[in-house]
Design a protein around this nucleic acid. Structure first.
Lengths: 155, 155
DNA sequence: GACATTTAGTTTCATATGTAACTATTTATG
DNA sequence: CATAAATAGTTACATATGAAACTAAATGTC
């Protein structure tokens, strides 16, 4: 007969936040390695390129919102991309604080190479799931995201 | 009629590795904040305590295997925990390189406090899912983990 | 048993990251 | 319009992290 006063067991390996973290880190590390090896880009730089390619003229702040990066990370990623010539900055006419970002031709050509690779990679990852499972996973993740959103107090 | 030669679209927000990373980071940040605020522990220190509480006498290497931490991270977390008096090291009789780790009484008392809190927290997080959904999520995550395991080549 | 190899764990060093302070510009308030 | 408050983005600083070098002990090989 178990003693109910004992501290309940916690098995790290069954702990959802832990499992999520390990899975996400495993995948992220793989991807980081690929982008670094193939294009010399960090994940952050790649995210900036991804949204800039999708929305030319975007501002650093908007990039932050779309990529869940903080403004310092965006600033650094942008600086690095300008340095290697993949990104170009024009200051906004309407607002002198803001700058508009664009892929350069070199940046666009990297973008055009990297996007299919990224998509292929995601598909390779998701290939183990059926289409129904993918939909279901997305649904469950969204439920969790709602539960974990930073503005919502935990208890 | 869309031009098939154009680069296909990639929407970061729909990209599974990205979504996983954001979800995991959101949850991890919350937890890190809680453990830091309540106990002055980092996530790594907490993971070390969790497995040591579960398997007293465990070695640093085994901790690394159970927690998906590298040996440097384990070493640092252990050093910090010894410093604050939550962990105790005894060197192994059989193998002089290895050391066995134990929670001290102070460490045990923190452990006994933190475990129910961690469990409650996980339950709060999972409360948005039905039991069936939890099982399903675990199954899907395991499929992905198999697909993403570091030893498996991507293409 | 001497020497090479492996393993456990720590330390060092270089880089990444987050927080806070800062500059520049715009917007709001009296 | 002068000044305060807010916003965009950068810089500086302190800390975290990972890779590689290192120490010490154990194991394998001749």
């Amino acid at each position: 007969m178990p003693d109910p006063s004992r501290t309940p067991q916690l098995r790290l390996r069954e702990f959802l936040p832990y499992r999520l973290s390990v899975l996400s880190n495993t995948i992220s590390r793989r991807i980081a390695e690929l982008y670094d090896r193939e294009f010399g880009l960090t994940i952050w730089q790649w995210r900036v390129m991804a949204v800039t390619g999708d929305a030319p003229g975007i501002s650093a702040t908007e990039i932050g919102q779309r990529t869940a990066m903080d403004k310092v990370a965006v600033s650094r990623a942008v600086a690095g991309l300008i340095e290697v010539g993949y990104l170009e900055r024009k200051s906004s006419e309407e607002d002198g604080r803001r700058s508009k970002l664009y892929l350069t031709p070199a940046g666009t050509s990297v973008y055009d190479e990297i996007v299919p690779m990224a998509i292929a990679e995601e598909q390779a990852l998701e290939a183990v799931l059926t289409p129904e499972e993918r939909v279901e996973l997305t649904r469950l993740m969204e439920k969790l995201a709602g539960s974990a959103s930073p503005d919502r107090p935990l208890w």
